[in-house]
């Protein structure tokens, strides 16, 4: 008799506890999903115009919009165009071209990359992501390397 009672009691407890947990979970799940933002549906651009031919000086760089992210276009001393995603691989700052040292520099934590985007000093752990550059009419076009 006694045993039957305790097993019935624990059954009821499990039922209550389980029910409570389920209710709590059914409240929490939509809240957690709500708090995390939806993934952006905006597609990454195939190719964008980063500028016009002839508007940049030799040995200079500029930031352009590559979709929602910043890109860096460099016109080297040798007259070549180079493009990279401008997001520093260290902690997400936006890098800049330095014409005094002919390198790419991140001001946040003093990281340097060479003109091929390779991390050469400071904290950046990886090279910058390189982009394709091609000229179409008088636009300097930039696209992802696939």
């Amino acid at each position: 008799m006694e045993e039957r009672n305790t097993s019935r009691k624990s059954f009821i407890n499990y039922l209550l506890g389980g029910g409570f947990t389920l209710v709590a979970a059914s409240f929490l799940y939509p809240i957690v999903r709500f708090v995390l933002p939806p993934k952006s549906t905006e597609a990454e651009p195939m190719a964008v115009s980063a500028g016009k031919v002839g508007e940049m000086h030799l040995n200079s760089g500029k930031i352009f919009k590559f979709g929602r992210k910043p890109g860096l276009l460099i016109y080297t001393e040798q007259g070549e165009y180079q493009a990279f995603m401008a997001t520093c691989t260290h902690l997400d700052c936006i890098v800049q071209f330095r014409n005094d040292s002919e390198s790419i520099w991140c001001a946040c934590h003093n990281g340097y990359y060479d003109l091929n985007g390779n991390n050469i000093s400071g904290p950046p752990p990886r090279p910058l992501e390189r982009l394709n550059v091609f000229i179409k009419d008088d636009d300097i076009m930039v696209s992802k390397i696939t």
Binding site: K65, P70, L72, I94, V95, Q96, C106, A107
Partner: peptide, 10 residues
């Protein structure tokens, strides 16, 4: 400006 390089002294 989300589309400018980080300035010095961040």
């Amino acid at each position: 400006d989300p589309f400018s390089s980080a300035p010095e002294g961040i």
